[in-house]
Amino acid sequence: MKLTGAQILIKMIKAEGIDTIFGYPGGAVIDIYDALAKQDGLHHILVRHEQGAVHAADGYASVVFTGQVPTTLIGNDAFQEVDIVGITRPCTKHNYLVKDVTKLASIIKEAFHLARSGRPGPVLVDLPKDIQNARIDFKEPEEISLKSYKPNYKPNKKQLKKVVDLIGKAKRPVIFTGGGVILSQASADLTRLAKMADIPVTASLMGLGAFPGSDPLWLGMLGMHGQYEYWPL
């Protein structure tokens, strides 16, 4: 099956189970928008500023696709050329500039894998215009296996035993939770642990909601505007 880069992009986004994307058309992404107009199943919400699209997608998924000048013009200071990979290096988990359309499908798959796994974070894929409109035989990408990126999900049991000993000995324990507990969908486990050992719970701003705010063991938020309570100075 012959597909253009733009069509491969849409196919791969759908393959990730995504049904809604946010975006804004422009000269450098016009091929993607042409392909978007000719498909079903992927709902596109037109924002009024690109920043709006990024924030709208934030609570959703976090892969950003940007348009780039054709590969032949990169480095020429071409119209609307921006080194987006360079600019976004400090604020993404990873980013890509696609230079070979045959690698496009696997790069997109890899991008979603990185965005969702381990400590989740935004990934950016920059798509030069000639990559978007190049037409190739589409091949399903293989399963992702990255030698240099293998997040460790399974905790060391010895260390867990140490925690249990510490809980057993503690007189004044506190659990402090953050956004990571919400991202790993561990609210129920957190609540169970707190109740098992009567441990009060506090949270950072990003951790609010992981433990019920109406529970007697809830201490309120921690930090600069965290809850005080009386302290005899």
Binding site: R172, V174, I175, T177, G178, I182, L222, E229
Partner: peptide, 16 residues
């Protein structure tokens, strides 16, 4: 009480 509790706790289990 969150801040005071942290000031006086003897064990903190910090997750995520």
């Amino acid at each position: 009480m969150a801040n005071m509790s942290i000031g006086h706790c003897d064990l903190m289990i910090a997750a995520g």
